[in-house]
C-alpha cells in the first residue's frame, strides 16, 4: 500500500514542476512547523518520516526521467544529497534517537518509513543513498550544482557521509 502511495506521489510530482523544485531545493521546510509545508500539528517524527519518503520518491522520479530531461539530470546530485541525509538522519544521534522525538521512538519510527515493518528496507536504501551521494561528491567538478562549492562545504559533506553529528562523534553506522 505504501508503494501505491509513493507511485501516486511520483505521478503528482510529474504534473507539478514547481513542487518538484521545492522538494529538491527546500526539503527542510517539511521539518519546520512554521512553514505550513505539512499540517502544523504533526509531531517531528512523523514530519521526518514523510520527508524521508518524499526524498526517496523525488530521487527515484528524477533518476527515471533524467535520461530524457536535462533539467532533471542537473537536479539529481541535490536529490541524492537530500535522500541520503533524510534516510540516515535518525542514526546520527549518540543518545539513540533525535532529541525532539519521544523516548524509545527510534525503532518504531524507522520501521514505518516505507510501510509497516520496513526497517530493513530503510537501512538498505540509506546505504544505497550513501553510495550514490558519495559518487557525486567524488566527481563534483562534473556537476554544475556542485562544481562551485567551497572546499570546506565539500569537506563537511564528506564528513557527513562517514560520521554522526557533533564534535568527536563516532562513525555513522547504518
Amino acid at each position: 500500500e505504501f508503494d501505491q502511495a509513493a507511485t501516486r506521489l511520483a505521478d503528482y510530482l510529474h504534473t507539478r514542476p514547481g513542487l518538484l523544485r521545492a522538494l529538491v531545493h527546500s526539503p527542510h521546510l517539511l521539518l519546520d512547523p512554521q512553514s505550513d509545508a505539512l499540517p502544523g500539528h504533526w509531531p517531528p517524527a512523523r514530519r521526518w518520516r514523510v520527508l524521508a519518503a518524499c526524498a526517496d520518491t523525488v530521487w527515484a522520479y528524477l533518476e527515471r526521467t533524467a535520461p530524457t530531461h536535462s533539467h532533471h539530470r542537473r537536479l539529481l546530485p541535490l536529490a541524492a544529497r537530500s535522500r541520503f541525509l533524510a534516510l540516515s538522519y535518525p542514526f546520527r544521534f549518540r543518545a539513540g534517537s533525535p532529541p525532539d522525538w519521544g523516548k524509545d521512538e527510534l525503532t518504531r519510527q524507522t520501521e514505518l518509513v516505507f510501510g509497516r515493518n520496513s526497517g530493513a528496507e530503510l537501512v538498505r536504501r540509506a546505504n544505497e543513498a550513501r553510495q550514490a551521494w558519495a559518487a557525486y561528491l567524488d566527481t563534483y567538478q562534473s556537476h554544475p550544482v556542485l562544481a562551485e562549492a567551497a572546499s570546506h562545504d565539500l569537506e563537511e559533506e564528506v564528513a557527513a557521509l562517514a560520521f554522526r553529528a557533533g564534535p568527536r562523534s563516532g562513525p555513522l553506522v547504518l
Binding site: A5, A6, R21, A22, S26, D36, A37, V50
Partner: peptide
C-alpha cells in the same frame, strides 16, 4: 526562489497528498 518553494508546499492538494503518504506508512 524560497518564496516560490513555500508557495508550492502549501497548496491544499499537497497537504492531501502527504496525509495519504503518512497514513500508508502507519
Amino acid at each position: 526562489s524560497p518564496d516560490a518553494d513555500r508557495a508550492a508546499l502549501t497548496a491544499p492538494d499537497w497537504h492531501a497528498m502527504v496525509a495519504c503518504v503518512a497514513e500508508e506508512q502507519e
